[in-house]
Measured scan of single mutants.
Amino acid sequence: KVMEIKLIKGPKGLGFSIAGGVGNQHIPGDNSIYVTKIIEGGAAHKDGRLQIGDKILAVNSVGLEDVMHEDAVAALKNTYDVVYLKVAKP
């Protein structure tokens, strides 16, 4: 199931950690970017929809399929206060 989640960045950013990407696979044979941690009190935690194990398909208009881990981190960092995440639920 794919959904779009709109998050408003807090003082600590979006409030979640990711793993995965080309050269840094979270699941062997899979280059996808996965949510590995939700920080308590952060934007994602308060919103409640993003969960550990969700796959991040895109940030705003930037696709995160088959990208390097660093590029995924940069895509999440290089955002304004309002961030749209395209997410696939497991």
Rank of each mutant, 00 (worst) to 15 (best):
K1A: 04
K1H: 03
K1C: 08
V2A: 05
V2D: 14
V2P: 03
M3A: 05
I5Q: 00
I5G: 00
K6M: 07
L7G: 02
L7T: 01
L7S: 01
I8C: 09
K9P: 08
K9N: 12
P11I: 12
P11F: 08
K12I: 07
G13V: 03
L14P: 06
L14Q: 02
L14R: 00
L14T: 04
G15A: 03
F16M: 06
S17Y: 11
S17C: 15
S17T: 07
I18H: 04
I18R: 01
I18C: 05
I18P: 01
I18D: 00
A19F: 04
A19R: 13
G21E: 02
G21M: 02
V22E: 04
G23P: 04
G23E: 13
G23F: 05
G23H: 09
G23A: 09
N24F: 13
P28D: 05
G29C: 06
D30S: 10
D30K: 04
N31V: 04
N31M: 03
S32G: 05
I33Y: 06
I33M: 05
I33F: 12
V35H: 00
V35I: 13
T36W: 14
K37M: 14
I38M: 11
I38L: 12
E40N: 11
E40C: 10
G42I: 00
G42S: 13
A43F: 03
A43M: 08
A43L: 07
A44T: 04
A44Y: 00
H45S: 15
H45W: 15
D47C: 07
D47G: 04
G48H: 06
R49F: 05
R49M: 14
I52W: 05
I52H: 09
I56D: 00
I56Q: 00
L57H: 06
N60Y: 03
V62D: 11
V62L: 14
V62Q: 13
V62H: 15
G63D: 13
G63Y: 13
L64T: 12
D66W: 06
D66L: 06
D66I: 04
M68I: 15
M68V: 14
H69A: 09
H69M: 08
E70T: 15
D71P: 03
V73P: 02
A74S: 12
A75D: 03
A75T: 13
K77E: 08
N78K: 14
N78S: 13
N78H: 14
N78F: 06
T79I: 14
Y80H: 09
Y80T: 09
Y80N: 08
Y80S: 07
V82K: 11
V83R: 00
Y84H: 10
Y84C: 14
V87Y: 06
K89T: 11
P90K: 07
